[in-house]
Amino acid sequence: MYRVVGTLALSVVVPLHNEEENVPRLFPALEEACGPMGVDYEGIFVDDGSTDGTWEALQRLQPGSSRLVCARLGRNSGQTPAMAAGFELSRGDVVVTLDGDLQNDPKDIPELVQQCAEGSDLVCGWRRDRQDKLWTRKIPSKCANWLIRKVTGVHIHDYGCSLKAFRRGLVDSMRLYSDMHRFLPFVAQRAGARISERVVRHHARRYGVTKYGLGRTWKVLFDLVSLKMLVHYFRRPLLWFALLALFPLLLGTAVLWAALAGGTSGTVLFGSGVVLVSMGFFVLLLGLLSDLALRGEWREFEQLLVQDAGGPA
């Protein structure tokens, strides 16, 4: 069983961006799902700089069994920062995140929380029967999931699902920025979290418009590369850059050798060797520069790792 660390049993964090129509439907569904659990819980609604009436809709909510926390961000900051804001305000032992578009079903919350109580630090929802467009959403999502699984080595099915349950200690030890939510399981795993998943319901969007599109694919790709590097080499950036430099250095040396020893080819081959070798050196120097840029910062990261996901907040 998990220890009581926060002051409440459960926090449900919902980032919202222009979900005016969904708010009045989402909240009763949430209370209906969580009320019967018989625990002290709070709903945290984070209005991420909406330009429609989302904030007004939040003000009209009447809490029945939940404690209600409505927060408004200073500007539109994106889903991950909005989630981080919700985490900052949350006090529950378990924190569940949920999309504000009603595609996730709050009915799944009790099961996720239960699974968390059974010993997982992070329970990821898996939308096995996804109710979205096939070509623009489901297939790209399948590819992205496969790629993320290969690169990060965390074996869950659905990285994009917002419905997740976190244990308090994990929430406090994660550092979130930009579009990191897709890689949360990876970050959590590196922090030593025990991760499990559970099939959750998924509904088609009824109101409002989706905020995703195919245009973000290349971003995910680069984010993935950077995260892979960050997680593995943050404390030894020189090693990373040295690995990068290895290939051009070796190839360049071989080309130089061929040009000098062979004697048959002219200046062009020699020049190519020079370019490759100098590029290798350049990348090595970048590694040293990164040591300089990160001087002292590793303490912060070390602290993150030491804070075991199951440990006290």
């Binding site: 003000q59 809490p63 404690r67 961000l73 200073g74 900051s77 991950t80 920062p81 305000l89 960050l230």
Partner: peptide
């Protein structure tokens, strides 16, 4: 990434807390 801890990517403008009935 090194600076991410120092700069929160969001600002909370307003918080309203309400108690259950």
């Amino acid at each position: 990434f090194a600076h991410a801890a120092k700069h929160k990517p969001y600002t909370i403008r307003e918080v309203v807390r309400r108690e259950p009935e």
